[in-house]
């Protein structure tokens, strides 16, 4: 079903989504979607508003249990997890899937460092022997906490927030909050990172930095990234593989070049009017020039 460009195959299959369907009463938010995301790749999921992207994420991370379908996560070491059968917290704990949220969900009253330590909860909880060793102040726990702080510092340095570590998370400017949320997700040491519109509300410079960060995560930490994004400049430059949803269905799947010239995609974004010029801004975002869009329009 998926036909990724051979050149783009840099990793083994990481996530296999098969016939995923999610219904809310009469509304079918996700309708029979299948695709595969590979390890060490950035897979972008795009589509107009209401296409079912966030619902797909919520199924993946256990907030909804899908009506139909199978979600298989295959770790690089060969272990397999059926995500649709796991409650949300186990997906993060055992299957090592981390996510961010469309409207940022930080622990805004806590400090930035604390946010990142919460992300290492399960590791630290074991080290503190479910609080007993921690209450007694045993050295084993203190060592584990120091390591956790080191990991947090590493990621804070990465997202350029190290000097703000003791600030309250809610006091950070918007762009920094987005970065912090990614750092927090990475502190869970995931094999798959799911980002829900990480570039929303960022200025062009911040978007460029975000792209840089995501490339770094893919190349240096060798994990898979799943990305919901509306900012086409980000999607088209960093994605290895793009999946397009519209009205809950998958309408295209392939490399950015293949997808952005796909007539069905252009139709989904622009509607079916034949005599309409492609608005300049959309054309730029999609990376096609207006005349090409126009021609495709005529072709249908």
């Amino acid at each position: 079903m998926t036909a990724p460009n051979p050149i783009a195959v840099t990793g083994a299959p990481l996530l296999r989504v098969e016939h995923l369907t999610m219904r809310f009463g009469g509304l079918v938010a996700v309708n029979d979607v299948s695709f595969t995301a590979l390890n060490r790749e950035i897979t972008a999921i795009i589509g107009p508003n209401g296409a079912g992207k966030t619902t797909l994420f919520n199924c993946l991370t256990g907030f909804y249990s899908p009506t139909v379908g199978r979600l298989t996560l295959r770790h690089p070491d060969g272990r397999e997890f059926l995500l649709e059968r796991m409650p949300g917290y186990v997906i993060s704990q055992k299957a090592a899937v981390a996510r961010t949220f469309q409207n940022i969900r930080l622990f805004s009253g806590m400090s930035i460092l604390e946010n990142l330590l919460v992300a290492q909860h399960n590791k630290l909880q074991r080290a503190s022997a479910w609080s007993i060793a921690g209450l007694l102040g045993l050295p084993g726990y203190r060592r584990a906490e120091k390591e956790a702080i080191d990991l947090a510092s590493y990621w804070l340095d990465r997202v350029k927030l190290l000097e703000y570590a003791d600030w309250q998370a809610g006091n950070l400017p918007y762009g920094a909050q987005r970065r912090l949320e990614i750092a927090r997700a990475m502190c869970t040491e995931p094999v798959l990172l799911c980002l829900d519109e990480p570039a929303a509300g960022l200025n062009p410079r911040e978007s460029a930095e975000l792209s840089e960060l995501l490339r770094f995560i893919r190349d240096e930490h060798k994990i898979g990234v799943l990305l919901i994004e509306h900012d086409m400049s980000v999607v088209m430059t960093i994605s290895d593989h793009v999946v397009v949803l519209d009205y809950g269905r998958k309408i295209a799947d392939g490399t950015p070049e293949v997808v952005k010239n796909d007539p069905a995609v252009i139709r989904a974004y622009l509607g079916e009017e034949e005599d309409e010029e492609l608005p300049e801004i959309v054309a730029r975002d999609l990376g096609v020039d207006g005349s090409e869009g126009h021609r495709t329009g005529e072709g249908t």
Binding site: S92, F101, L106, F107, H121
Partner: peptide, 14 residues
Amino acid sequence: EALREDDIASASLG
């Protein structure tokens, strides 16, 4: 404290 601040985010962190 994380649960108090945002319990959905807490669940997403395991």
